[in-house]
Computed example of a mutant assay.
Amino acid sequence: MTPMLAVLAVLASLLGAVSCEFSISIYAGYGFPLPNPNQPFKLPPASPPKNPRPDLKVGYYAANKCPQAEQIVKRAVEEATPGEKAGLIRLFFHDCFVQGCDASVLLEGPDTERTAFPNLSLRGFNIIEKAKAALEVECKGIVSCADIVAFAGRDASCSLSDGKINYQVPAGRYDGNVSRANDTFLNLPPPFGDLKLITDMFAAKGLDQTDMLVLSGGHSTGRSGCGSFTNSFSNRLQADNSSRAMNRTLADQLNTTCTADSVNVPLDYKTPYALDHQYYKNVQEHNVLFTSDAVLLESPETKVLVDSFARDPFFLSDIIPIGRNPWYDAFAKAMVKMGNWEVKNSTVGEIRQFCGKVNDKKTY
């Protein structure tokens, strides 16, 4: 792989795997200058959310709308694999950060978000479609794909955290009808970002630095392609004396494992199938894959949160904990907060019949 193609690989995503290569013309076509290794990489600023206080409510589908809506989604998620569940959490993130929480990431077709490089490794589409098909039988034309994605993100988080993360999801979203591939790079925080860049990109979505650090804990489950952290622009496996350097033991292991960019490795090498606070211990010990994880130790404000979330609860005995790690509740609150941004209403949105395409106005 050429150095320029390796640069492209780092754009894979904040949470996901990399399995494809593209020519540098694709990269340039999205309007970005070629990265200069001697200068910090700066993405264009994202647009502020248009609707910071959408009219969503818990129990939106209860009573006469579709009382079984959330249970139908939950059953579909329960049948998913751990990898698909991790993918559903990431799917919610990628949806909300581009065009708002409107299921625009699900739309199929040329030059849609789904075709953009950071989204090529997204998983969980089949789970969303399965839930949507069941809901169309139960209550046709009532439950939006955007709400299904939000419910599935919650249910996947609950399952992978062994019930430690569970929260009520305000619903009432409509599905958007705009999905553009080039919007992804403008809005999705990159894995090579420094602390300011990542913080600023979250702020553009109404999420503060604490929300950013809390949601980064999603890296405690799922996998990533080696190409997302091994390339000429940001090779995390090379010897490095900086404070961002990866622990050499892990780096040496990955140097052996990463025989190709498409090889997938766990984001959390200790508890890869659990959504837990182990991620913050990994940050403390420099056992993280991405630069965007390593930089969480670079300011006093973020370091104190990392240290707090890394602590295990005290135990009265071997099995009775005293207290609760605060990250689980913080993650739940941040997921709800993220899900509130740029929500579509009936004026600019619709309830799709199929999540992968906009409705045919003549038939639905």
Rank of each mutant, 00 (worst) to 15 (best):
N325I: 09
L213C: 10
A150V: 10
A69F: 14
V169A: 01
G59C: 14
D147P: 13
G206L: 14
P110Y: 13
L250T: 08
D252Q: 15
Q209R: 12
D268G: 00
V149Y: 02
G83N: 08
A310I: 11
T271D: 03
R324C: 09
T259F: 00
E70I: 12
L213N: 10
G225V: 13
G172S: 06
L91I: 04
Q284F: 04
P49W: 05
A6L: 01
S262F: 01
A332W: 06
N235Y: 05
I89M: 15
S308T: 15
K362Y: 10
N166M: 02
L15R: 08
P52H: 14
Y174K: 11
V288Y: 05
S161T: 10
K205L: 10
L237M: 05
G356I: 05
K85A: 07
V169L: 01
I351F: 07
Q99V: 08
D329K: 10
F32L: 11
N36E: 11
L43R: 06
A6I: 02
M212V: 00
D360K: 07
S179C: 10
T259I: 03
A9H: 09
S243Y: 11
L106I: 12
K270L: 14
E298K: 01
F97L: 12
Y269W: 05
A12V: 09
D183V: 09
K303W: 06
R311V: 13
Y174R: 09
I319W: 12
A239Y: 02
A203D: 04
Q99G: 08
K85L: 11
A86K: 04
V10L: 10
S243R: 15
S13C: 08
R173A: 00
K344T: 11
N166G: 03
M4H: 06
L43P: 01
S234I: 01
N340P: 12
Y279T: 03
N359P: 13
L305M: 05
E78Y: 05
R114T: 08
G172Q: 10
F315Q: 06
L56S: 06
A294Q: 07
A134R: 15
K281C: 11
F32N: 08
I127Y: 05
N51R: 12
E113R: 14
Y273S: 15
S216L: 12
A251N: 13
T363E: 02
I127S: 14
M338E: 01
T271H: 07
P44S: 00
R114S: 09
I319E: 13
L106A: 10
A260Q: 02
A69R: 15
C66H: 11
F309R: 00
M338P: 01
E138N: 13
G225M: 12
E113Q: 15
K333I: 06
M201A: 00
L250C: 02
H219F: 02
L34I: 05
N345D: 15
G176E: 07
A28F: 00
C226H: 06
S19T: 01
